[in-house]
Design a binder for these strands. Structure first.
Lengths: 218, 218
DNA sequence: ACCCGCGAAACCTATGTATAATTCATAAAA
DNA sequence: TTTTATGAATTATACATAGGTTTCGCGGGT
């Protein structure tokens, strides 16, 4: 099942995990305890470097980052992860942040930005929401990745035919378009259906949509 | 062309307009001048009440709201518009805001949250981005609304058939499903294609997707 | 040699349309 | 109120086109 993206996510059913990066040891440990009270597996680091050494677990989860950290800041981590195409939801904490900083973080996709001191419940709410968001995203990612895996088993011709067929062209039109006989198009088309596991043209069209092959617009 | 939603938007090609709500007269006028320097039509009010009396223009645009206003605050306006299903992008300004306030606004969909004093260029950048976002959303809305208009011309039977056909069922399967003869299904199907203006089944499937009739998932 | 792309003949199923007829309900006119 | 008109829904027959598979065969490239 599932798939295999670069160095990232695939599991969606695993037990969720919170990863904390906070240099203040007492707060870090308090957060670990807090999350464990609601049964969340928790991993905690004291700096960005420690976090980036270990790769994130392949399970739904979120990051809880202090904005101000020794070395790379929480916002820097956000940027690094984005560059690495890792979309784990991030919750920021800060004791001395300002509005522009919070706005920048939110625009960059953070799910929340809490000011210290915060209420335990606010943090828990944010984490639960973030994990749910991650779970949904992973589910979506897995579906598309699996589709893409199937799509990659198609030959160049088959991909071409798939694109044209899902556009709504008839076999004869596809044939004219690519300079083949209609019968050959039918054969390729049949192979496409089998390889992609499509049980109907409607199915195939939706797959093409998910793969962003056909124009989503009309 | 286009459509007619509740009490709202339909035009996408019109000249963009910025609507300002700011009680400080000098800042309000400064903003009007600022926006006009880049050729943006601008409408300015001194309070939420004045804004809500006039309905928003049916053209791409955005709102620039002071957070603190006499009567309803900028955030209140955001809430009111959301309740009224109006999604004009909002840019907030504040002189005395705090992080939780900005985060709340951003979570509720604000495109930016500027602290006074802000640089003119920052405001212009925010406004330009917001207008572009609104234009894109309107375009999308219009397409779906037009589709929905067509869909509403379908009879109950035709809608039923459309749903089943776009699921990928064959005519005979649809017939069995709804207890009709296959030929009758064909007739309804043909009417659906003509009424919806679909030139192919692929077309119809995409329409069904846009109308959220068929499961987006597989 | 084998796989892949390509194509033809034959055959069957599915789709689409036209014609025609029946039933039903509702709306408009007498 | 009765009659009439209209439109939706239903089905059948018949025909034409499109879609899909199988079998068989050819040629090029790894």
């Amino acid at each position: 099942m599932s798939s295999q993206r670069g160095a990232e996510k695939s599991d969606v059913s695993g037990e969720p995990m919170v990863v904390v990066v906070e240099d203040d040891t007492s707060l870090r440990e308090a957060l670990e305890r807090l999350f464990r009270t609601i049964g969340l597996r928790t991993l905690a680091f004291g700096s960005a470097a420690e976090l980036l050494e270990n790769k994130l677990p392949d399970t739904p989860g979120c990051l809880v980052l202090d904005v101000r950290l020794p070395g790379l800041s929480g916002l820097d981590i956000q940027g690094e992860l984005a560059k690495a195409d890792i979309h784990t939801p991030i919750i920021f904490m800060t004791g001395h942040g300002d509005i522009p900083m919070s706005v920048r973080a939110m625009k960059a996709g953070a799910v929340d930005f809490l000011t210290k001191p915060f209420r335990d419940q606010d943090m828990l709410d944010a984490v639960v929401a973030a994990i749910e968001r991650d779970r949904a995203r992973r589910k979506e990612d897995i579906e598309v990745a699996d589709l893409r895996t199937l799509f990659e088993t198609l030959t160049a011709r088959e991909r071409e035919i798939m694109a044209l067929v899902t556009t709504g062209l008839m076999n004869k039109q596809v044939a004219a378009e690519v300079g083949l006989s209609e019968i050959t198009v039918k054969i390729h088309r049949g192979k496409v259906m089998r390889k992609m596991g499509a049980r109907s043209l409607a199915d195939l069209v939706r797959m093409a949509e998910a793969l962003e092959m056909s124009p989503t617009k009309r």
